[in-house]
Simulated scan of single mutants.
Amino acid sequence: MSAPNKSYDPVEVEALKPEEIDRVRDEALAAFAAAASLDALREAKVAHVGDRSPLALANREIGALPPQARADAGKRVGQARGAVNKALAARQAELEAERDERVLVEEAVDVTLPYDRVPPGARHPLTTLSERIEDIFVAMGYEVAEGPEVETEWFNFDALNIGPDHPARSTRDTFFVEGAAGGPDLVLRTETSSVQIRSMLERTPPIYVICPGRVYRSDELDATHSPVFHQVELLAIDEGLTMADLKGTLDHMVRSLFGEGVHTRLRPHYFPFTEPSAEMDMLCFRCRGESAGNPDRPCRTCSSEGWVELGGCGVVNPKVLTACGVDPEKYSGFAFGFGIERLLMFRHNVEDIRDMIEGDVRFTRPFGMEI
Rank of each mutant, 00 (worst) to 15 (best):
A3W: 04
E14Q: 10
A15W: 06
A15P: 05
E20G: 01
R23C: 11
A28L: 14
A33I: 07
A34N: 13
A34D: 15
A35C: 07
A36K: 04
S37G: 02
L41F: 10
R42D: 15
V46W: 00
V49G: 04
R60M: 13
L65Q: 06
Q68V: 06
R70S: 02
R70M: 08
A71G: 12
A73I: 05
K75C: 01
K75I: 05
R81Y: 00
V84F: 04
N85T: 02
L88N: 06
A93V: 10
V105Y: 09
E107D: 12
A108S: 14
L113V: 03
Y115G: 09
V118F: 13
V118Y: 10
H124N: 06
T127D: 09
T127Y: 09
L129C: 12
E131L: 14
R132H: 14
D135L: 03
G141H: 06
V144H: 08
A145Q: 13
P148V: 01
L160A: 12
I162A: 03
H166M: 13
A168M: 03
R169E: 03
R172Y: 10
R172I: 01
R172P: 00
T174Q: 14
V177R: 08
A180S: 09
P184C: 01
L188S: 14
L188P: 07
R189F: 11
S193G: 12
S194Y: 04
V195T: 13
L201Y: 04
P205E: 13
P206L: 05
V209P: 05
R214E: 11
R217Q: 09
R217V: 01
E220R: 01
L221A: 14
A223Q: 13
H225N: 01
V232Y: 12
V232R: 05
L234C: 12
L235C: 10
A236N: 05
E239C: 05
G240F: 10
T242D: 10
D245Y: 11
R255K: 15
S256E: 14
H263N: 08
R265I: 09
R265C: 09
H269T: 08
Y270K: 00
Y270W: 06
F271E: 03
F271T: 09
P272L: 11
T274L: 06
P276K: 02
M282P: 02
E290F: 06
C299K: 07
C302V: 02
C302S: 00
G306H: 11
G306L: 13
W307N: 10
V308I: 15
L310M: 15
L310K: 09
V315L: 15
V315G: 01
D327Y: 08
D327R: 03
E329R: 13
Y331M: 07
F334I: 04
F336L: 11
F338I: 02
R342T: 04
M345T: 03
R354S: 07
I357K: 06
D360A: 04
V361M: 15
R362P: 02
T364S: 15
R365K: 07
R365Q: 12
F367E: 00
